[in-house]
Structure formats: structure tokens, C-alpha cells
Computed example of a mutant assay.
Amino acid sequence: MSNDQPAITASELTKTFDDDAVVDGIDLTVDQGSVYGFLGPNGAGKTTTMRMLTTLTTPTSGDAAILGTSVGDRDGVRSRVGYLPEEPPVFDELTGREQLRYFARLRDLPPEPAADRIETWLDRFDLTDDADRRLDDYSKGMRQKIGLIQALLHEPAVVFLDEPTSGLDPRAARTVINAIDDLTDNGQTVFLSTHILSVVEELADTVGVLYEGELVAEGAPSELTAAAEAGADSTLEDVFLSVTTESSTAATAVADSNAGEVAGETDAAATER
């Protein structure tokens, strides 16, 4: 596959429930080896978007693709993506190690490399001593780590992470942030949804802000903060508040203004990594 093939594309991607557009015709292009920070208030449609991109929810209209494979081809996409939902799917009656072995079998990983990867990740996330405890005895943060390992175990080309540092203490959160950074160093792509804006500012190459189902702002963090016109010390939080508290018309105007600035810098941004 060509190295210039986008990791994620979406065209007029839409999902309606009872005639209500939860995701309303969004367009996306995410380069390989990059981190895309996906922001928006609760109820904006972020999780629905991620579920469509990972084939768990069928779009009402529009299309999306992972490395050129349409999300309509569920088997073709499945092997290329890893997904950590906000609530990791685990079985309480299993131990941490049993859960990961089970997931490795679901991903058709050969036993020996699977065992090596499991032990490596357990050690990295400081779970080795607790790996043989049942998951119903795990804290929220520990369950979150197991869920993240599941998402990464088969070394997917594209990783979707929904609030990956939720429930983690600062030290554990830093370990997760460093792991995400390492993924892109290995050429993997990360689609990151989180309310912790400092994480997005640190990691993201591109940020998209979803509001009422529409992508109302998109660009590199520095470009978005410059467009916020909140002074030299403006932050991603200023951008977020600006485009999610104004009317949809005003928010779209901000996005259109920023799009003009970004268009002239596309080639440079594409070669950053």
C-alpha cells in the first residue's frame, strides 16, 4: 500500500436517529503516522463518529474508509483498527492476563508472540503483579489499562482512543501519553477523543472540533489558537469554548476562516512526521 494513502477518510459521513442528525455530513482526512485530536462537548457526536469509523455503527449516508478500505467492508477494516471505547469491554470473571489472552485469540494472534506482547504491555503499564487477579477486583484505572492493551495488542495501523486516560492517576496517565507518542513513531495513526485539552495540545498534529454533529473547526493546534483571536496567550481551550458556545452559524464562520489559512500550509503539515 502506498505510503501516501490517508489512514482515515470520511465524506459526508452522516448518522441519524429518528430523523435527528447526530453526525451531520462530516468530511475528514487523517494522514498516516499522525495523531488526530477529536474534541467536542458531551453529545456532540464524537462516539457515534468513532463507532462508524470502526464499523460498529452503520452510517445513514456518506462513506468512510480506513487505509482505502470502506467501512462497509467490516472484515477488511477490522484487522487494521484498534478501538478503546470509554468503557472498556472486559469480562469481570476473568483475570487481567486471561482477558488479554482471550482477546489475542479473537484477533487470531499466534500464541507465542501474543504472550510476549501481553507481558511487555503488562510490565509497561505496571500491571504484572495484578495480572492474575479477577477484573471485578480492578480499579477503573486498571480496567482502562487492560482496555488500552486490548486495543494495541494486534499492532493495528489505526488506533481509536476514547478518553484513554480516564480514571488514571497522573503517573499512569503519563505512561499512556508516552505510549501514544510511541505509536506514531512506529508509523501508526491515532484518532484521539478526550476532554483533557492539555493531552491534545501535547500530542495532536491536527485537531477537529465537533459541535452539534458538525465539524466546526479543524487544523493544527497552533493554527486554531491563532485563529481564536484571543491574544498571544490563547489556548486550545479558548478555541474550544469559542466554537462550541456560539451559534452554529458563527462557529461555521470560524471554521471557514481557519480553513482558508490551513489550505495554504497543507504540504508543509503533511511532511512534519
Results as ranks from 00 to 15, higher is better:
Thr184Ser: 11
Leu127Cys: 06
Ser34Phe: 01
Val207Phe: 08
Glu214Arg: 15
Thr95Arg: 09
Ala114Leu: 12
Asp4Thr: 15
Ala172Leu: 12
Ser61Ala: 14
Phe103Asp: 13
Ala204Asp: 11
Ala268His: 04
Leu241Ile: 04
Asp4Trp: 00
Leu197Pro: 13
Ile66Pro: 00
Thr266Ile: 10
Pro59Met: 03
Arg134Tyr: 08
Ala226Tyr: 05
Asp267Cys: 03
Ala114Tyr: 14
Phe17Cys: 02
Leu94Glu: 06
Pro111Cys: 04
Ile8Thr: 06
Asp267Pro: 07
Thr225Trp: 04
Leu210Ser: 02
Arg273Lys: 08
Ile118Leu: 10
Thr49Tyr: 10
Thr29Ile: 06
Ala226Thr: 11
Ala151Met: 08
Ala204Val: 09
Ala114Ser: 05
Lys46Pro: 15
Gly45Cys: 07
Ser198Arg: 07
Asp267Met: 09
Thr16Arg: 15
Glu163Phe: 10
Ile8Gly: 03
Glu212Gln: 14
Phe103Val: 04
Arg174Gly: 07
Lys145Glu: 02
Phe17Asp: 01
Val243Glu: 10
Leu109Ala: 05
Gly82Tyr: 11
Ser166Pro: 11
Ser61Asp: 14
Ala259Glu: 10
Asp132Tyr: 10
Glu229Ile: 00
Ala217Ile: 02
Leu67Cys: 08
Ala255Lys: 13
Thr120Asp: 09
Tyr36Trp: 15
Leu215Pro: 02
Leu106Val: 13
Ala226Gln: 12
Tyr36Val: 11
Phe103Ser: 07
Gly96Lys: 06
Gly264Tyr: 05
Leu94Cys: 08
Glu12His: 15
Glu272Gln: 11
Thr245Trp: 03
Leu28Ile: 11
Ser166Leu: 13
Thr48Ser: 14
Leu53Arg: 01
Ser248Glu: 07
Ala228Trp: 07
Ser193Ile: 10
Leu203Cys: 13
Trp121Asn: 03
Ala220Met: 09
Arg117Pro: 07
Pro156Tyr: 12
Leu148Lys: 07
Met50Ser: 07
Glu237Asp: 15
Pro41Glu: 10
Ser247Gly: 01
Ile196Ser: 11
Val22Ile: 15
Val216Ser: 00
Ser247Lys: 02
Glu119Cys: 09
Lys145Met: 05
Thr165Ser: 15
Glu272Thr: 10
Pro88Trp: 00
Val23Cys: 05
Val77Gly: 02
Thr249Ser: 14
Asp116Met: 05
Gly43Ser: 03
Val262Arg: 15
Val254Asn: 01
Arg174His: 11
Lys140Asn: 03
Leu153Tyr: 06
Ala220Tyr: 06
Thr16Phe: 04
Ala10Asn: 01
Gly208Thr: 02
Leu148Met: 12
Pro170Gln: 08
Val159Ala: 08
Met142His: 06
Ala64Asp: 01
Gly167Asn: 08
Ser61Ile: 01
Asp31Tyr: 04
Val22Gln: 02
Leu28Tyr: 03
Ala226Lys: 12
Ala250Asp: 13
Asp63Leu: 01
Gly45Arg: 01
Pro88Asp: 04
Gly187Ala: 03
Asp137Tyr: 11
Thr120His: 15
Leu39Ser: 07
Ala173Met: 05
Ser61Lys: 13
Glu265Leu: 09
Val262Ile: 04
Ala10Ile: 01
Glu93Ile: 07
Val209Met: 04
Phe38Leu: 15
